[in-house]
Structure formats: structure tokens, C-alpha cells
């Protein structure tokens, strides 16, 4: 067999192999198709009975107003320090509790207008490490200061109860918040925000 023949045979074998194995290799999950539009943060494009950003904003505004009007906060000589400890998610929604806590804290900080100071307890390890480095002279410092103590602990709990019947959905949501005195353990304030949503699947999906 001449060299040319070997090449043609090899080419044939490779092409046959490629033909038999050819498959449209798709990435594991392709990005969502469709168009993208910038929409207002309060608008709800997808109608559903779950919570959306509009609900979260309303909850936080109401709670922040309620906290600011507390005598212990309103009459305080200096703004009290509050640590937002946890937000327990007991809703029927697959949402990240940390993200929920984060967004509620952001809204509270924005709405409290400096009448309450939120203390960061999540970053306590990094803060302590930085202080050690400052004390050791590894990094510069504007002078030693005492770590802020907390006057109150703020905790929250989100709860929902959903009911369904023949394609109809009804969801009841309750977001409750509690302020506990860090010195005495007394509950000085507790408030809740409730709302209900209802919807129905289309005729062909019932």
C-alpha cells in the first residue's frame, strides 16, 4: 500500500468515527434566553403569591418607624447601639436567610436616619484581628478605642402559611421583630408586619 493510500484510509476512519460520535456538545446549563429590560425595583413583572422586594421595603420602613418612636430610642441622649443577630426563615420560600437579614438590615439602617447605630457582630473576628495588628504596630492607627458594646439585640422571624385548593393559592405572611435589652434580657419592643396574597392558576392548569 502506498503512503497516499494510508492517508486516505486514515482520513476515512477518522471521518467515520467523527460521524458516529458527532453530537451537539451543549454547555451544562445555558444562560436564560429572551430579552432583558431594566425595570423599577418595586414593580412585579411576575405575578405570584410570594414575597417580593416591594413587600420587604414596606416591612422595613414600618419596622424602622416603630423602632425610632420607642421612648428608649427617641429619648436617648446618644443613639443606642443595636446588633441585628438573626433572621429566622420559616416561610415556604426557598430564600437565603442571610440575604434576607442583610436586606432588612440595610433597609433599617437607611430608614433609621442615624437615630440608631447598628453594630457589626458578623465581622467581629476581622475587627479583633485588625485591632491586634494596630496594637502590634503592623498597620497604622488613629489611636486605641474601645469596641462598641451593644445596648439591644434585634432578632426577626419570617413565617408564612400557604394554602392551596383546586389551583387557588392563598399565602399569609408574618414578619416579626424583637428588640431585647443586652444588659437585662428584657424584651423592650416587639412588632409584626402581616400581609396576605391570593392567586389562582389559569383554567387549563386547574
Amino acid at each position: 500500500m502506498r503512503r497516499k493510500d494510508y492517508w486516505s484510509v486514515a482520513l476515512l476512519v477518522i471521518s467515520a468515527f467523527l460521524t458516529s460520535c458527532a453530537s451537539d456538545d451543549a454547555p451544562m446549563i445555558a444562560p436564560m434566553g429572551g430579552s432583558v429590560n431594566r425595570i423599577d425595583v418595586d414593580s412585579a413583572l411576575i405575578a405570584d403569591v410570594t414575597t417580593d422586594s416591594q413587600d420587604l421595603r414596606a416591612i422595613c420602613q414600618t419596622m424602622a418607624r416603630s423602632i425610632i418612636n420607642l421612648p428608649q430610642v427617641a429619648n436617648a441622649v446618644s443613639p443606642p447601639r443595636v446588633a441585628f443577630l438573626e433572621m429566622v426563615n420559616r416561610t415556604t420560600e426557598d430564600i437565603d436567610s442571610y440575604n434576607l437579614l442583610d436586606s432588612i438590615r440595610t433597609q433599617l439602617v437607611k430608614n433609621a436616619n442615624g437615630r440608631v447605630i447598628f453594630v457589626d457582630r458578623e465581622r467581629i473576628d476581622s475587627i479583633l484581628k485588625e485591632r491586634e495588628m494596630k496594637r502590634a504596630g503592623t498597620v497604622g492607627s488613629s489611636g486605641p478605642q474601645v469596641l462598641s458594646g451593644v445596648d439591644f439585640f434585634l432578632t426577626g422571624r419570617a413565617y408564612s402559611e400557604m394554602k392551596a385548593y383546586q389551583g387557588a393559592r392563598q399565602a399569609y405572611y408574618r414578619f416579626s421583630f424583637r428588640l431585647t435589652d443586652a444588659e437585662t434580657g428584657d424584651i423592650i419592643w416587639e412588632d409584626e408586619y402581616e400581609f396576605k396574597k391570593a392567586g389562582r392558576l389559569g383554567f387549563m392548569n386547574r
Binding site: 426563615n89 420559616r90 415556604t92 420560600e93 426557598d94 436567610s97 400557604m162 392551596a164 385548593y165
Partner: peptide, 23 residues
């Protein structure tokens, strides 16, 4: 979610499964 140790989210989904079953 349960397998990954995200228990609160797992609970939400198990409860959601029960809601869907109400139909």
C-alpha cells in the same frame, strides 16, 4: 438543600411540596 446543610431552605421546600399536594 438538606444534603447541603441548608436546613431552613430545605424546610421551606418540604413545606412547599405539601402545599402543592393540597391540590
Amino acid at each position: 438543600r438538606f444534603y447541603n446543610g441548608e436546613h431552613d431552605r430545605a424546610l421551606a421546600l418540604f413545606r412547599r411540596a405539601l402545599v402543592s399536594d393540597m391540590d
